[in-house]
Design a protein around this nucleic acid. Structure first.
Lengths: 273, 273
DNA sequence: ATAAAAGTTCCATTTAATGAAAACAGGTGC
DNA sequence: GCACCTGTTTTCATTAAATGGAACTTTTAT
């Protein structure tokens, strides 16, 4: 059971969001009232009232098992237009399609969010590649996986150090690199301009990624290719790296350099994953 | 300016959601306080308080223009796990990839939501096809476009009639079929088992779609291919229809037949599109 | 059949939301 | 440089609305 109690915070909104987060953590089967009340740290009557209101708004719907609740379709529709900072998703879409078409491998677009990277778009290649972020909307700590590492490697030294310190244990927990290997990878990435994961967490999986910078030079996102070890021949690797860098530069040039959300961690640092 | 006033409803939640809907309707540039207050029908101080709270939760973030607000990344992450009724998105993913790989055209997965169909997943083909729903999370009235029409054609007679009456004007407004043509298309779709749009709204665009039924026979979704007129040769059309039907049947067999969200319109009927 | 657990309703209490008014910031034109 | 306008923010007395304990009902397990 994942606890999503709105600790410290108060207000109706925090409680409602706590319920939504509990439901988000629960998958498509949904959660029963008691579980929700427990997870959100609310008395059952209160949780019930909230669920009814949320249901009235379409943000929550009845689960498959009758006596359960889950996130509703309306929430999905509502949020589909979010997660597009500086219009990055729209700007990146054509580039992603071009890269996917050129190499027939899966392409990912990740943006930074505090200590994490969030997958905001994906374009499938010929073979289905599972990404570390899971589905679109998923988070990985910066430093785990090629896209995420490409972002981390391009941060200013002080910020990079802070993130490394914060994320190291999380990265280890999830089977990523240890400190020495990570620091080596960061240097290598910074030197070459792209991150190269020869043989990733899933045996045989490999990938390449480049940072995307806005016109001020700030790293805001990463463009990443996921493929397999055997498909990543030296010739293809070189061609991929070249194309990724070209496309990333084009995206960066088109992006708005004055976007506060892409600057510093800010308020939304309590990364849940 | 799109008004999203929480008419009739009350409670803190409705107001917060009204603000989110206003922001969702506004695109990535965001909205200023006054516009939000206006759109949500709230006094400015109240709107401001809500925005601050929502920002604290990560559901809203500062827009690019400094003095503006837009939907936040956290909302995107939160809702990414929604919009998966009966696990349909997960169940459909492999089928979509197979179809996309087989024909190299774009594949769509739509679910019904009241009088609308919502695009919940997409797999890109070799040429980018713009769908009527816009992006993932977008809505179209049932009866506009092949996927949406495949669903409508498969509804029980009474329900179909209700939806047709409700949607006809909306469909016309958006350049769709008139009543006679729509009814002919519905009959044709029901007879053949798939919906065939020879030359769609965008000149030259064409598509095929089949309904997805759960094990009780209820239509719950549609699997759709978007392509161009010249790529839709008779041979390919036959092969596509056959494969779509096969894959749709497989998805339907795997889906949970006791899912309340997929039964009737229910409470979330105030379709905004 | 019985017990235990989950869900639901009720309502007196209290907290927290509300929004008018007023102060404040930041442009624009004179 | 000053007055003006528009949009934003703070304050605070008022009031409405959220709260959750206790009691009751339904469902599930034994």
């Amino acid at each position: 059971m994942v606890k999503v109690v709105a600790e410290g915070r108060d207000g109706v909104l925090s409680r409602a969001v706590a319920i939504l987060r509990a439901l988000a953590a629960a998958g498509p089967e949904g959660l029963r009232l008691s579980d929700i009340a427990d997870a959100a740290g609310l008395p059952k009557p209160t949780a019930l009232r909230f669920l009814r209101n949320l249901q009235g708004e379409g943000l929550v719907e009845d689960g498959p098992s009758g006596r359960s609740y889950r996130l509703g379709l309306d929430l999905f529709c509502l949020a589909a237009r979010a997660g597009n900072p500086s219009n990055l998703r729209d700007l990146g879409r054509p580039a992603m399609l071009r890269v996917a078409a050129a190499f027939e491998d899966t392409v990912f677009l990740l943006v930074r969010s505090g200590y994490d990277a969030v997958l905001i778009d994906r374009s499938e290649g010929v073979l289905p590649v599972r990404s570390l972020t899971g589905d679109i909307g998923g988070k990985v700590p910066l430093g785990l996986g090629q896209g995420s590492t490409a972002i981390l490697a391009s941060l200013p030294a002080g910020e990079q150090e802070e993130v490394v310190r914060h994320n190291l244990s999380l990265i280890r927990e999830r089977g990523g690199l240890d400190e020495a290997a990570l620091r080596a990878a960061l240097l290598d990435t910074a030197r070459k301009g792209y991150c190269d994961v020869a043989n990733g967490l899933i045996p045989g999986s490999s990938g390449l990624a480049v940072p995307i910078r806005d016109r001020t030079g700030q790293v805001v996102a990463a463009l990443s290719i996921g493929t397999t070890l055997e498909r990543l021949t030296p010739e293809r690797r070189a061609a991929m790296a070249e194309m990724l860098q070209r496309e990333a530069a084009a995206i960066g040039d088109a992006s708005n350099p004055f976007d506060p959300a892409l600057r510093r961690p800010g308020a939304s640092l309590q990364g849940s994953g």
